Amino acid sequence: MKRPLIGIMLILMLACKNQEPPAAQAEAVPPLQPHMGMAISEDPAKLKQWLRLEQYPPVHVVYQWNGRNTSGMEAALYYDEKTYGAILNAYMGAGFPKGNYSKEQFAFAWLDSAQYAELQYSKPDYTGNPDIFLGTGGKGMLWFLDKKILLKVKP
């Protein structure tokens, strides 16, 4: 009678020794910080730290950036009809400066399917425009869509 009891205890002791440590003891992965890589945001207040949005304030923004500066920033700026018209008038007044960009440069991985489709159906002869109002210091490339502007800042 003692032998089966000792055998069971021995099996239980061996089973307890072979268990893996609980998940809480595993090394914790640090949360993603903006300075660690590109982050996507919809916070217009943060975007205002990097771009001049006061003259033509967007109604919505989505952007990807490195957390430190505008280098490599990608953004979609959404405007109401009145503000979008004012931007177009400003470009007309400036002689509508032309860019030499391709739509592939604005095919951001994070665009939703409707935005991507709108970009792909852009006029074939359209080559974008340089930034003249966002304060990117000559590094901003713009692609105008319907009441939205895609922005890419050169690194």
Rank of each mutant, 00 (worst) to 15 (best):
21 P>Q: 15
65 W>L: 14
103 K>R: 05
63 Y>F: 11
152 K>Y: 00
32 L>K: 13
17 K>I: 13
8 I>W: 12
85 G>M: 07
127 T>S: 06
108 F>R: 02
121 Y>A: 05
39 A>Q: 12
1 M>R: 08
23 A>Q: 15
63 Y>S: 03
123 K>A: 15
112 D>T: 07
38 M>S: 13
134 L>I: 07
86 A>G: 14
130 P>S: 11
78 Y>T: 00
1 M>Y: 13
58 P>D: 02
48 K>R: 04
4 P>D: 01
146 D>N: 05
111 L>H: 00
8 I>H: 11
76 A>F: 08
43 D>S: 09
81 E>T: 15
109 A>L: 03
89 N>R: 01
57 P>V: 12
100 N>P: 05
16 C>Q: 02
34 P>V: 04
22 P>E: 02
91 Y>A: 13
93 G>S: 12
77 L>E: 01
147 K>A: 04
26 A>Q: 12
111 L>C: 01
28 A>Q: 15
23 A>G: 13
16 C>W: 03
1 M>S: 13
60 H>R: 07
5 L>E: 09
61 V>A: 07
70 T>M: 03
123 K>P: 10
62 V>I: 08
50 W>D: 06
99 G>Y: 05
40 I>L: 06
102 S>W: 15
124 P>E: 10
31 P>I: 01
40 I>M: 06
114 A>K: 11
114 A>L: 10
117 A>Y: 07
2 K>N: 11
24 A>F: 13
53 L>K: 03
136 T>Y: 00
37 G>T: 03
6 I>W: 09
61 V>F: 08
11 I>E: 00
62 V>Q: 03
111 L>I: 01
121 Y>K: 07
19 Q>H: 10
144 F>N: 04
74 E>T: 02
